[in-house]
């Protein structure tokens, strides 16, 4: 279980995340929603250790991880797919996937996992020797998801996987994600602006506004509450 307890994250004097508490149970998919600039990416960066928490702490699997550097957090089983498809542009698709498994020692298992990713995302198999920077946006998004899964994480942090993708591709990516979460028994914290799609896959959701959690509740409750949807989720 991942638990953020009253975390505060600042950029210099600017408070971007203000006393946020979030829980993700084992094998649960939780959505983190909110408009541009609400602080969603900042929350994920704090979990991954890319930004320090000014106060509060983050617990994971019985320990506190909020003081660890990013590579130790990956080692602890939390892997992030960052916003904006951060591929290794000059490296091949295959090398990108290998880097996802950087911390793993069992070469045999890594190789079979790469094959598994090629099954989930056949287009990556076709392009395995192509430089990642030359893939289309949708293909890059699939690559960064597959790359994160190569670390065989217990928890996946996804930052706006739908951004800039055609609706059809979004559906495709999400249905594969759904399958993978079940197969790999993943816990997921999913950041999205597209609330409707996110709620269709998550069981619980938080809504951030100006760095604070303003609403939280089960997906079913949110989907059923029209006035809440109108005022916070924009659909």
């Amino acid at each position: 279980m991942l638990e953020l307890r009253d975390i505060v994250v600042r950029y210099g004097p600017v408070v971007a995340v203000d006393r946020v508490s979030i829980r993700v149970e084992e094998q649960q998919v939780v959505a983190l929603l909110g408009a541009n600039g609400a602080g969603k990416t900042t929350v994920l960066k704090a979990i991954s250790g890319l930004l320090p928490c000014a106060s509060g702490d983050i617990a994971w699997g019985g320990g506190v991880i909020s003081k660890l550097p990013p590579h130790r957090i990956v080692r602890a089983g939390i892997c992030q797919v960052p916003e904006g498809r951060e591929v290794f542009a000059g490296l091949s698709v295959y090398d990108n996937l290998r880097l996802g498994a950087y911390l793993r020692r069992n070469r045999h298992a890594v190789r079979s996992d790469i094959d598994r990713m090629y099954e989930y995302f056949p287009v990556l198999a076709e392009r395995r020797d192509q430089a990642a920077g030359t893939l289309s946006g949708g293909e890059q998004q699939m690559l960064v998801i597959a790359r994160a899964l190569m670390s065989s994480p217990a928890m996946l942090l996804l930052d706006e996987p739908s951004l800039g993708l055609a609706p059809l591709v979004v559906q495709q990516v999400f249905s594969i994600l759904r399958r993978i979460c079940d197969d790999m028994r993943l816990s997921v914290l999913l950041v999205e602006q597209d609330a409707e799609t996110a709620l269709s896959i998550a069981s619980y959701a938080y809504v951030l506004e100006a760095g604070r959690v303003v609403v939280e509740g089960s997906s079913v409750a949110m989907q059923g509450d029209e006035s809440l949807r109108r005022s916070y989720l924009g659909y």
């Binding site: 991954s48 890319l50 550097p69 990013p70 590579h71 990956v74 080692r75 892997c79 992030q80 960052p82 951060e86 591929v87 290794f88 542009a89 000059g90 490296l91 090398d95 290998r98 880097l99 996802g100 950087y102 911390l103 790359r147 994160a148 670390s151």
Partner: peptide, 23 residues
């Protein structure tokens, strides 16, 4: 593998940290 990590850090340090590489 170390060479691959070096190329990764060169290419995208934020992503390489998220791969568990100690930049």
């Amino acid at each position: 593998k170390v060479g691959l990590a070096m190329r990764a850090v060169t290419s995208n340090p934020m992503a390489s940290a998220l791969m568990g590489i100690s930049n």
